[in-house]
């Protein structure tokens, strides 16, 4: 795929992390997040170690810290929820800076924040170092049903097209003096959504006919047969194995 098709979340580069096959990386990230979720929340130092592990991976992948932190902002809605938690949770209460807070609520907020942030950071690193097409192929190699992967790839391919279509409709509305200000204007916006549905469904029918006329029978031909070697798997496993060691320590100590 050319540069035009690369998604904005991907950072091109040549690093050991970029070179790993996608399915190794997906499996590694998934296991890592699973280990993080299974860690007891009282072991605060374990989460610091996890963050250190992720920072090491980011350094190996040459992903700048600013990029990573900016992408972490997606978590903000849940941060708001976590901040609320010490105020509403039950149990023994403590006084901090003149506020009446629940102890278990504080632990809960810490738990969600730490684990959620680590999970988001891990997926951001995955998306930043893996090309979209490779990501989809990786999912397919991990025995996700091929039909599901095909649907996902169509969604990714045409997502930008439809978003552009939506943008053109918005410009058309604006240039006719329409500005959505409140509930009264929902009718117009809903008509745009309806038009978008009709256009995307009809585009789907055209795409299908075009594919059938080129010999499509329901399965995509597999063009590249790159398989992961033992070295790849070992490298990819370094992250979850290190995390597992930390997690076991957290349970023992």
């Amino acid at each position: 795929m050319g540069a035009g098709h690369a998604h904005k979340l991907y950072r091109d580069g040549r690093s050991p992390v970029h070179a790993l096959p996608a399915h190794c990386k997906i499996a590694a990230v998934f296991c890592f997040v699973l280990v993080v979720v299974a860690t007891p929340r009282t072991a605060a130092w374990a989460f610091a170690l996890y963050a250190g592990l992720l920072a090491a991976v980011a350094a190996a992948a040459r992903v700048p810290a600013g990029f990573l932190l900016k992408r972490l902002l997606i978590e903000v809605p849940f941060v708001a929820f976590a901040v609320l938690m010490p105020f509403v949770a039950e149990g023994p209460r403590t006084h901090l800076l003149g506020l009446d807070l629940s102890v278990s609520g504080l632990w809960g907020a810490w738990n969600v924040l730490a684990k959620g942030t680590l999970g988001v950071a891990a997926s951001v690193l995955l998306a930043a170092t893996t090309e979209l097409r490779q990501l989809l192929l990786g999912l397919e190699r991990l025995r996700i049903p091929p039909l599901l992967v095909q649907i996902a790839s169509f969604m990714i391919r045409y997502g930008d097209v439809l978003t552009d279509e939506l943008r053109r409709m918005r410009i058309a509305r604006l240039s006719r003096g329409f500005e959505a200000r409140g509930v009264r204007h929902w009718g117009v916006l809903a008509k745009s959504a309806g038009a978008l549905f009709i256009r995307s469904y009809e585009r789907g029918e055209r795409v299908h006919l075009a594919m059938v006329s080129r010999g499509y029978t329901g399965t995509m031909p597999l063009t590249d047969t790159a398989t992961a070697t033992r070295t790849h798997w070992t490298r990819a496993a370094a992250l979850p194995l290190a995390a597992l060691a930390v997690c076991l320590l957290g349970w023992i100590l």
């Binding site: 095909q150 649907i151 169509f154 990714i156 045409y158 469904y201």
Partner: peptide, 11 residues
């Protein structure tokens, strides 16, 4: 299925 469901997902 793939093209139509894919386009609906994109929608």
């Amino acid at each position: 299925t793939a093209p139509l469901a894919g386009l609906v997902a994109a929608f």
